[in-house]
Simulated scan of single mutants.
Amino acid sequence: MKLNPRTFVTLSAFCFSILMAPVTIAIAAPVKITTPTGELAQGWLFGARHGSRCWLAVPSHVFRGMNAISILFTDRRGISGDAGPVLPVSANSDALAATGGETDLAFAPVSTGWSTSSCVSGLGLNTFSYAAVLQSAPTLKITDMLAASARLFDVEVTHVTLDRTSGRLIGVWPVDPVKGQYMKAGLSGAVATVRRSTGAQPFAMVLAVDTRRSIVRALRFDAIRNAFSSIERSWRQNEHVARVAAHGIDYEIAHIKVLMLPDEQRDAGSAVVKQPGGCWRLAAPGGSQTADITIETTSDFERIMELRVTTAPGCEPSADIFYLEERPTDGDQWTYIGPCRVRTPMEQDDLPACTINRSGKRQFRLRIPTGGGVVAISQIEIR
């Protein structure tokens, strides 16, 4: 829908952090990107809400036809980093729905030397704030990172797409017609920011430039943020699956009911059972027939299929059996799973694991009979 020129919303005060002191410039985070083929592009560096990883938001057409497993970027301070692989929203149905069907967007996890303390910028205003911001006729700025000195120029809204994308796509052009010369190829990925009390916030990312009319097509950052939520969740799940395949499911020792032997320490024993090849010698506390170890998984993404306890060569006297119980969290009743054999070096390939078949975060209690003496285990492994 075209807007009447008198009602154009001015998108001008794109305050870019280069002009600010170091303490405040961390809010705005445009970056220059080098593609695998050596071409230059632009994007936005931001920190994810979950975990400590930094990410890039970029137009996906910049990498079309490339094997973009790894890309280089440089921030406003001249500090460089690596990111990848490039994850297009077109490969994720939920992310694509969040953009209203707009496919020209991708994200890339930053891989080396960066954490959220290095990329404190986010993904802009919430969806409900956009209408209010447009009605207030804000001044925004575009920052062109590919210009010789990070060129800034003011733009205004020419139209808003009010179809199935619900206004997520907007068109902008320069406030000063002379600056129309800045609307050229290479501007894709540049970000239009709005001045708020918290500093410069990203408002829309340039996706395409109409050089003849000096107009750019841009995607609002609330759509970018919603698309990223789906991309990040999928990425975290895939990363988790790969980690489990290589190292098993991570867990923590929640509680032990074990008689500490003079040459054993709780911390040492807890660390030993998470790695192969160690040895933890256990005895039951007074009046008990079993040494009890309670462990808990740490991720909501778990699909827990089996648990196994093994002893390494020379770790003696090997425990023979343990009784396994499970529950969702503290305070819930324990559910008995059954007796399970401890695997010795000769049995590790022949003995079936203790079947679990549970999902999400869980607690497991292993009750190891000691026969009134000492028994040893090497590793507790969950898969």
Rank of each mutant, 00 (worst) to 15 (best):
Q348M: 10
I79E: 11
I356Y: 05
D267K: 14
D222Y: 10
K32I: 08
R308K: 12
V172Y: 03
K141M: 10
L187G: 04
T161P: 02
V23P: 00
P317T: 07
V89L: 10
S230Q: 08
T344G: 07
D163F: 09
E156P: 04
G113C: 13
Q379P: 01
A284W: 00
Q181E: 11
R220I: 05
M305D: 14
R213E: 09
N238H: 11
L207S: 05
V342F: 04
A28S: 13
R76W: 03
T294W: 07
D222T: 07
A131P: 01
E325L: 12
R365V: 01
T161N: 09
R213V: 00
M346R: 07
P369K: 00
M346Q: 13
S52W: 08
S318Y: 03
Q333G: 13
L259I: 02
P109M: 10
P345R: 03
K179V: 00
E239H: 14
W235S: 08
A137C: 08
I215K: 04
V120G: 00
S115R: 15
E102F: 02
G51L: 08
F46I: 07
L169D: 01
S52V: 12
R164C: 05
P30I: 08
C315G: 09
I295S: 00
P88D: 13
A106Q: 08
K361Y: 02
T370R: 09
S270G: 14
S93C: 05
L125N: 00
S359G: 00
T290A: 15
I249V: 14
T335K: 14
R164Y: 07
M346K: 03
D267P: 08
G124K: 02
P138Y: 08
R49E: 11
L282H: 04
R358H: 09
S229L: 13
L207Y: 04
T116N: 15
K2P: 04
I33G: 11
L324C: 07
E239A: 15
F221P: 01
R77G: 13
C54N: 03
